[in-house]
Structure formats: structure tokens, C-alpha cells
Amino acid sequence: MSEHHAHEIRQATRKYIYVFLALLLGTVITVVAAYVPFGSRSLNVAVALLIASAKAFLVAGFFMHLISEKKLIYGLLGATGFFFAGLMFLIVWSNADQFLSIFR
């Protein structure tokens, strides 16, 4: 274990703590934002999902080291993300007639 290496790890540890604090903050914001009326329920939904995505980005990016992963894994996750989006979007689209009532 080289000194340099150990130093890097300690630095990373500090980063993890910041991320942790950010996640706690994100949780608080999510809860608070849910009780603030933004005018329509869809807007509340959008805000909540946005915050959740930000938190997910932190977990995936830092705890799971996706910020600096190998190309192969990006490729895999990119494809998966695409197919997931296709699944969700196309299913919803094919039921588009119910859309007017979205998120009552």
C-alpha cells in the first residue's frame, strides 16, 4: 500500500461524507417540497422526481464510482437506460387516451 494511494483513499473518504450530507439534505428537501403546493400535482411530481434523480446521481456517481468508470460499463448502462426508457415510454404512449387524466 503506497503512501500516495492511502492519501487518495482518505481524500475520497472525505468526498463520501459530503455526498452523504448532500443526500440527507436532499431527503429533507423532497419531504418539504411535497407539501409545498406548486399549483398542480404534476408539477409536484416533476419536482419530486427531479430531486430523486439528483440523489440517485450522487449515489451512482460517487458511492458506485460511476463518475470515473470504464467505457464498457458506460456502454452497458447506456443500452440498459435506453431500453428502460423505451419500455416505459412506449407503454405509456400506447395508453395515451388515458393521458388527459394524468396524475390526478
Binding site: 443500452a79 431500453f83 423505451g86 419500455l87 412506449l90 404512449w93 400506447s94 395515451a96 387516451d97
Partner: peptide, 24 residues
């Protein structure tokens, strides 16, 4: 492999999905 994930509803033309999505 890629395309086979986005063709599935050709089994469902008769479910009344609507013409736009059928065309897709």
C-alpha cells in the same frame, strides 16, 4: 439485438392501441 426491444407491440395491433403507435 438492438431493434428487437422496440418492436414488441406488433403482437398487439388488434388491441386498439391507436394508429400512431401501430405505425411506430
Amino acid at each position: 439485438g438492438f431493434l428487437s426491444f422496440i418492436v414488441w407491440a406488433h403482437h398487439m395491433y388488434l388491441t386498439g392501441m391507436g394508429t400512431k403507435i401501430s405505425t411506430f
